[in-house]
Nucleic acid binder design. Sequence first.
DNA 1: TTACACATACCGACTGGTTAGTCTGGTCAT
DNA 2: ATGACCAGACTAACCAGTCGGTATGTGTAA
Lengths: 197, 197
Amino acid sequence: MPRTTDGDGTPVPQRLLNAATRLFAEQGYDRTSVQEIVEAAGVTKGALYHYFGSKDDLLHEVYARVLRVQQERLDHFSTMDAPVEKRLRGAAADVVVTTIENLDDAMIFFRSMHHLSPEKNKQVRAERRRYHEQFRALIEEGQREGVFSTATPADLVVDYHFGSVHHLSTWYRPDGPLTPQQVADHLADLLLRALRP
Amino acid sequence: MPRTTDGDGTPVPQRLLNAATRLFAEQGYDRTSVQEIVEAAGVTKGALYHYFGSKDDLLHEVYARVLRVQQERLDHFSTMDAPVEKRLRGAAADVVVTTIENLDDAMIFFRSMHHLSPEKNKQVRAERRRYHEQFRALIEEGQREGVFSTATPADLVVDYHFGSVHHLSTWYRPDGPLTPQQVADHLADLLLRALRP
DNA sequence: TTACACATACCGACTGGTTAGTCTGGTCAT
DNA sequence: ATGACCAGACTAACCAGTCGGTATGTGTAA
């Protein structure tokens, strides 16, 4: 196996993904040329097209990574052995922390979906929908038990919360006054307070 | 004044802006060529570059229009003669309705900011900030009066709400089950319920 | 152990195509 | 006839993806 790593120990595909993620978040997908990506990763086009089928594939990988992580996290909180308020609060706060810790990914996720090819876009939407429905199920469970208000349809509540998560990448600054955990606690609080019967 | 209008009665600059708005929302700024815009508007490049300095200018005009409308609306509700809960609820619901009625604008607004030139971007951010602060002032007023909870900083509450507004363009469908007004009432409800002391 | 085949990892010049913006030359109401 | 308004060919730059080529490994048979 020849130089799959170079300089640092990070394998070339990883280096390419990292560079692409940063550049896509900074300048957007269309404004980032393949040439820039390979230069930032310290390789050439040959390497990129050796590991990835297209520029589009690179973007898709970013999505796949985000979806995988978020789904795993939600599974964890969904299946916890605790009252539904605690499970929902845990999940709601966790997605905020995770999003802040990967702001670049979040930025790309919500800003660049329309750059994915139609099939990939469809696939991402399907996985996203599954996530959404699992989250909604938590709220509906609480509504059935009477611990959450039924004034607002669960679907809308989910969109309300994820709107704020989505929005994080446009206003949160790591050098701001609030830590990720503090923001997460506040946003989860707002959700739970809105759901009080 | 020669044919500033043509075919229909709409003046050419308007036709160009309308075409650009629709195309930017459908395909994104970068994926839309100037050629497509002028064809959709039924003119040629000469006309576009007669009225607008650049493609970027066209985008900026979309932003200017949105900002102007939203600011006017907020001013109206801010200065209303009514208790602060009513003023906040009115403003919160109205921005939802307005956003749904101009989903294309909203889509462009949140997805294409980074395509604006640096100065224009800065200008838009400044006006946006003014809007944000005026909205925040409403919440702080209610908090001082004791009608809103002070558990969450007003800034965060504003971002929470505008996150959901921002998010509308990704999930709201005109052919869905809820009318714009119904969505607006629900989202305003969630905000006010979260703010109950 | 050497020799040779084969595979994997990567390089970088090149191609075909697209794009924003320019420029020259009209046209038409007043 | 004059100037605001517009047509459309043209240019210079850029970009995703290709392709022939090189380098370094691994397996295998003499």
